[in-house]
Design a protein around this nucleic acid. Sequence first.
DNA 1: CCGGTATCGTCAGTGCACAGACGAAATATT
DNA 2: AATATTTCGTCTGTGCACTGACGATACCGG
Lengths: 154, 154
Amino acid sequence: MAAVDLSTHPGHLARRLQQAHYLLWNTMVSEEITSPQYAVLNALVAEPGLDQRTVGERVGLDRSTVAEVVSRLGRRDLIDKVRDPEDGRRSLLRPTDDGVRAHRRLTVRTARMNQVFLAPLSADEQSVFLDLIQRVADAAEGLRNPAEPLTSPR
Amino acid sequence: MAAVDLSTHPGHLARRLQQAHYLLWNTMVSEEITSPQYAVLNALVAEPGLDQRTVGERVGLDRSTVAEVVSRLGRRDLIDKVRDPEDGRRSLLRPTDDGVRAHRRLTVRTARMNQVFLAPLSADEQSVFLDLIQRVADAAEGLRNPAEPLTSPR
DNA sequence: CCGGTATCGTCAGTGCACAGACGAAATATT
DNA sequence: AATATTTCGTCTGTGCACTGACGATACCGG
């Protein structure tokens, strides 16, 4: 019996954490707008007029996924999407008035949800928690882009 | 501009963490067998003959998802699935010889991947990290089953 | 023995997430 | 100016994950 204890596997814990968050979001924040949709909306409230590629960079989503999330947000009239007249490849995105209102409403609820989510930890532990997750995630994402060699090998 | 800094949102960080892990798994462990598939296989190596429901409980997956993962593992002949003769509702699962071998191989690679994944943290930080994630995930999962009231209302 | 209830697996529907391929548009090279 | 390369969005295919509904089986009270 060579089985392993998954509770020492960060990847498995990450999945469970994410699922737990998904459930809490559904009950405490919104059943229509998902967390990734909120993240995209938030990025566009911060910087209206971003193209899809850049939005993906901001929130950590690849182009295909951004396209799907954007299409859902557009279907609900929470964002507008227009071709960039100066660069026909780009689609420029900005929140509608409805989108801004939805974002404002969800921001309040999200804050409440985060409190509940982190409640099992003390204030000190909470900041450590956020810091550690961020460092691990950043480092792992860094492994994707092998950081351009100084002199490109031909 | 009422936008928010997502790096203080544990849910958003959880998603990024999970995605980072997904990528690392693909490059360092396996492109065919996914992390959830490994989790199910691991549960069955530990306790051969479990039914799908219990497997889901062990690894933190709902019945629908377990059904899909099980079907993929079955398609690759890594597990066997038979109706329980003593309870026609249950399907009993056990790893095949191939499944046990695959599990053994992946276990080695997974250990290596975990080291890389956690490398940005010191040894102390690593154990704190695992402890904190687990506590948050456990607590949030606990919110789902509101712990039967002592006297049922009505 | 028999009807009500609970449990298990399945199925349909929705949504996130990735890789790989492709066309259109812009930029770089020659 | 003509061709090559890069970039952006899209599309296809695979896989995880949940909800809600359904049929089959098992269990329980009368």
